[in-house]
């Protein structure tokens, strides 16, 4: 078990290094010029050169990369020679645009993304798995048709559409929900948990409609497959009640693909819900990443990309562990 975790940890580090190198290279060899973007509107070739030196972009590619990576191990100095400022560990650099410490920027953006992710995951898991299970149990009947029909609609509704419609209806017309406020980013804040729920309800719904549609489909098809397994017939032959057959025998066996999907989706969502954060103007990781990428802000883009990769990799390890807990056949000794 410990050996397994250590092996996965090693693989994770290696993967993160690869991701960082690729992101760094894409930026370096891409068409964007961070130096001219950073120097502002009234720019002379001279000032661009100064900016280039201040940002450290004049150095060879590998030196730049290694300097950046050294921030993960120890604090480092950033800035033009003679005007350097300290960047405490873990140093993810400073924004080319605002000169803000990237670690602080991430720390500010993360609660917003977490707020969106937590509620959306809970909503879509309950709705998706619950309705998928119901549809499987009522296969071919009216309830199944309605749920499957709804899921086909839901799966083809992109977040910008649902998001704007939700805003229009609940905020614009009915006035029952507030515009998403950036002053609330935690259920433990001054506004309290209820204000937090109301604040993020619409982004949650926008994501949950799309994701629960996918979860309905996957849950339904897996449960139908499981219901036809021989061991389900055995469970009936023992004289078990339907509830016990469906939940104890059926769900435990049929839910594993959903667990994989859920792990990967949570991992992905923690890296930033780009579209949702844009639509609802929530300054989370996705929102920050888009602005950084469009303005050539390398350190911010790097940091969010690596954080997203980190979440995905951690999620896959967690999925493996959960899988082993559910299915004894994949347990490692």
């Amino acid at each position: 078990m410990i050996a397994f975790l250590l092996r996965r940890l090693g693989a994770m580090l290696l993967l993160l290094i690869v991701v960082s190198f690729i992101t760094f290279s894409l930026f370096h060899f891409g068409p964007a010029d961070p130096a001219s973007a950073a120097c502002g509107q009234e720019c002379t070739p001279d000032r661009v050169e100064q900016a280039r030196i201040a940002l450290g972009l004049d150095k060879p590619f590998f030196v730049q990369y290694l300097t950046y990576m050294s921030g993960f191990i120890m604090p480092r100095m950033i800035g033009a020679p003679g005007a350097e400022s300290a960047c405490a560990w873990p140093c993810l650099g400073k924004s080319f645009q605002t000169n803000e410490n990237v670690t602080d920027m991430i720390a500010n953006a993360l609660p917003f993304t977490l707020s969106i992710a937590i509620g959306a995951v809970v909503l879509w898991t309950i709705a998706g798995v619950g309705l998928g299970l119901l549809a499987a149990m009522r296969k071919g009947k009216a309830a199944d048709r309605i749920i499957v029909g709804g899921a086909s609609v839901g799966v083809s509704l992109p977040i910008p559409v649902t998001g704007l419609v939700l805003l229009l209806v609940f905020v614009g017309i009915l006035h029952v929900l507030p515009f998403t406020s950036n002053s609330i980013n935690s259920p433990f804040g001054a506004a309290g948990p209820w204000a937090w729920v109301l604040n993020y309800l619409l982004p949650w719904l926008a994501i949950a409609i799309l994701f629960s549609a996918q979860y309905i489909r996957v849950t339904r098809s897996n449960m139908i497959e499981t219901f036809n397994e021989d061991f389900m017939r055995t469970a009936r032959a023992k004289g078990l009640a339907r509830r016990s057959i469906v939940f104890k025998h059926g769900v435990r066996a049929g839910i594993t693909p959903v667990v994989t999907m859920l792990g990967m989706d949570i991992g992905g969502l923690l890296g930033g819900a780009v579209l949702t954060e844009q639509i609802f103007s929530v300054p989370g990781l996705g929102f920050t990443a888009v602005h950084a990428a469009t303005s050539g802000d390398l350190p911010v883009t790097m940091a969010i990309t690596m954080l997203a990769a980190f979440f995905i990799i951690v999620a896959s390890v967690v999925v493996d562990l959960v899988y082993a807990a559910i299915d004894p056949r994949v347990r490692i000794n």
Partner: peptide, 23 residues
């Protein structure tokens, strides 16, 4: 019927690997 299944009528299936719950 549940009161008969298992209690008064027992059943052995062909392929015990698939007929038993793997988990």
């Amino acid at each position: 019927m549940r009161e008969y299944r298992g209690k008064k009528i027992g059943m052995i299936f062909q392929d015990p690997l698939s007929a038993m719950h793997p988990f």
